[in-house]
Computed example of a mutant assay.
Amino acid sequence: MAIQSTFIGLLLLHIAEILGLAAANRWLLGWDGLGGPASATLSWADLIYLTGVNFTTLGFTQIKLAGDIRFVTMLQSLGGFMILTWSATYLFTVYQRNWRRAENE
């Protein structure tokens, strides 16, 4: 049960992170020079898609960004890679702990 709870908790945490980063992207796109006129018209669905793809480090989207927002999304990809790697390591640790506990019973 601990493994499933940990997995679901991490999933919800990552969804919250993606939504938070999408909101940050919306705010940053309002700054002059950061996003350009094409980026400023993105819908919330577009922003969530863009952020989710970058967060999972796929980095390929059909959304074309202009200006310095490209660097922000690059840093979001790096941060997403780090967080997802840490999450996988933590999930593996929980799995190992439960496996050892089951072997000792």
Rank of each mutant, 00 (worst) to 15 (best):
M1N: 09
M1T: 08
I3W: 04
T6P: 01
F7P: 01
L10R: 05
L10F: 10
L11C: 06
L12I: 09
L12H: 01
L12N: 03
L12S: 00
L12A: 07
L12W: 05
L13A: 13
H14L: 06
H14C: 05
H14K: 05
A16D: 05
A16C: 12
A16Y: 04
E17R: 07
E17N: 08
I18R: 04
I18Y: 07
G20K: 10
G20I: 08
A22I: 03
A22E: 01
A23N: 07
A24D: 05
A24N: 08
N25A: 14
R26G: 01
G30N: 11
W31T: 12
G33H: 09
G36M: 11
P37K: 07
P37W: 08
P37D: 12
A40D: 08
T41M: 05
L42P: 09
S43F: 07
W44L: 12
W44N: 10
A45Q: 10
D46M: 06
D46C: 04
D46I: 05
L47W: 02
I48L: 11
I48M: 06
Y49C: 02
L50D: 08
T51Q: 02
T51K: 03
T51L: 06
G52M: 05
V53H: 01
N54Y: 09
F55Q: 02
F55A: 01
T56K: 00
T56E: 00
T56W: 00
T57I: 06
T57G: 01
T57W: 04
L58Y: 00
L58T: 13
L58K: 00
L58N: 11
L58Q: 04
G59T: 05
G59W: 03
F60K: 02
F60Q: 07
T61V: 02
Q62M: 06
I63H: 00
K64W: 01
K64G: 02
K64I: 07
A66Y: 06
G67Q: 03
G67F: 01
D68W: 04
I69R: 01
R70D: 00
R70M: 08
F71P: 00
V72Q: 02
T73K: 05
T73Q: 14
M74Q: 04
M74P: 00
L75F: 08
Q76T: 05
S77C: 04
S77P: 02
L78E: 02
G79Y: 06
I83A: 14
L84H: 11
T85L: 13
T85Y: 11
W86A: 15
W86V: 10
W86T: 08
A88Q: 09
T89C: 13
T89P: 01
Y90W: 15
Y90V: 12
V94D: 10
Q96D: 11
N98R: 14
W99M: 12
R100Y: 15
R101S: 15
A102N: 14
E103R: 15
E103T: 12
N104F: 14
E105N: 15
